[in-house]
Design a protein around this nucleic acid. Structure first.
Length: 366
DNA sequence: AAAGGCTGCAACCGCACTGTC
DNA sequence: AGACAGTGCGGTTGCAGCCTT
């Protein structure tokens, strides 16, 4: 049955359902119309009132979902552009499966859309034995396995407890050992009072080849977004590129603005804790399995009360220097992927998209 | 042409958070 | 402080259409 088609016995809102019964399944055009009209009159929110006021036999959650994902007038239809795909990959590298946060960076796109896209991408790339992340990010992974595409088992109940940023949190140990990323993890607060492991601060927009200083917290690391994406003529949503009233002149400015938006969401109460010059011996390793309790004081570390590394408040803008952190959980697939990555170091931006990828002779490819 | 597999997408479900009483 | 409703989020599922054999 196609979207908008009225199923047998369900013509019209609620038809075919008994009184008080909530309808499920695909929305009909009539239902869409009712919901749209309701929102036009009353605005978004109070979704449970939709049913009361319109007789629409849909629960509030269903109404909200339908509106947010399909009926909102500002939704962008159609497939993702290559630019959007790059943004998604980079955001995923930094945020993990934070679909809503990612969606906030892609105007007109929904979390569901991004989630579906990414999950499809994971499947496709895994099957093809291709890396999930763009070339500039892969350069980081040469020194450590690529991030986990995030499995339900790893992340299912971590939500709201510890943000599941696969590159930031799941593999801090490997990150700390990474030769390309001097160990100076930063603990930051995500707004829920939960610290996040974030990598050392760096000159965010500086080239990756900038000499690293292991003794400082300013080692050059991976930019959130590649300069070509932000500084070139790529078309991006306005709120991703230019601060209103300011000309965007450098990739750094673009990066900074992009991340600023993220920082605003991530910082919450604004408290950021820095583990200064912290090495693996000094900082507790938080495994993915410890996430649910590592910060409550009963296990792992509690950076607020008993920091095992020296901490200090930092400006939120310093999070600009975030870098993907490898996961400590490595599946067989990932190991294979990492090996493939190491054997295929010369990956170009053009090659990254699977459609154009010529690596069908890569090791492990069937 | 038909069957089976694959893909993309819409929608549901359960859990967590937040605000109000 | 606890209950409750409303809302948001991420994981999962079901299904139609497409593709491959």
């Amino acid at each position: 049955m196609m979207q908008g088609e009225i199923p047998k016995g369900m013509a019209g809102a609620g038809a075919g359902a008994g009184a008080g019964e909530l309808k499920k399944g695909p929305w009909t055009a009539a239902e869409d119309e009712i919901l749209t009209e309701y929102v036009r009159r009353h605005g978004e929110g109070n979704w449970n009132a939709v049913r009361r006021n319109t007789g629409l036999l849909r629960c509030g959650k269903s109404c909200r979902l339908r509106w947010m994902n399909h009926l909102r007038p500002d939704l962008k239809k159609g497939s993702f552009t290559p630019q959007e795909e790059l943004v998604i990959a980079r955001l995923h590298a930094q945020l993990g499966n934070k679909w809503a946060l990612m969606a906030s960076q892609l105007p007109g796109r929904t979390d569901n859309e991004i989630k579906n896209y990414w999950n499809t991408r994971v499947k496709r790339h895994r099957r093809a034995g291709l890396p999930l992340y763009p070339p500039d990010m892969q350069s980081f992974f040469f020194s450590s396995p690529p991030p986990s595409p995030t499995t339900p088992l790893q992340l299912g109940r971590q939500r709201r407890t510890v943000p599941p940023s696969p590159l930031m949190v799941e593999r801090p140990l490997l990150f700390a050992f990474s030769t390309s990323a001097p160990a100076s993890p930063i603990l930051t607060n995500n707004g829920n009072g939960v610290p996040l492991l974030v990598p050392p601060l760096s000159q965010f927009a500086f080239p990756l080849s900038t000499p690293a200083s292991p003794s400082t917290s300013t080692a050059p690391l991976l930019p959130l977004l590649p300069p070509p994406l932000l500084a070139g003529n790529h078309e991006l949503p306005s709120n991703q590129l230019v601060v209103p009233g300011e000309a965007l002149t450098t990739a750094a400015a673009a990066d900074a603005y992009m991340v600023d938006a993220m920082v605003e969401e991530l910082r919450g109460d604004g408290e950021l804790l820095v583990a200064e010059a912290c090495n693996v011996d000094q900082c507790s390793y938080i495994s993915p399995h410890q996430h649910s309790h590592a910060f409550n004081g009963s296990a792992g570390i509690n950076m607020k009360s008993e920091p095992q590394c020296a901490t200090e408040s930092i400006d939120a803008n310093q999070i600009l220097n975030t870098i993907p952190t490898p996961s400590t959980v490595t599946t067989d697939d990932e190991l294979g992927l990492a090996m493939q990555l190491e054997q295929c170091p010369l990956i170009t931006e053009e090659d990254w998209n699977i459609g154009a990828c010529p690596w069908n002779n890569m090791p492990g490819m069937s």
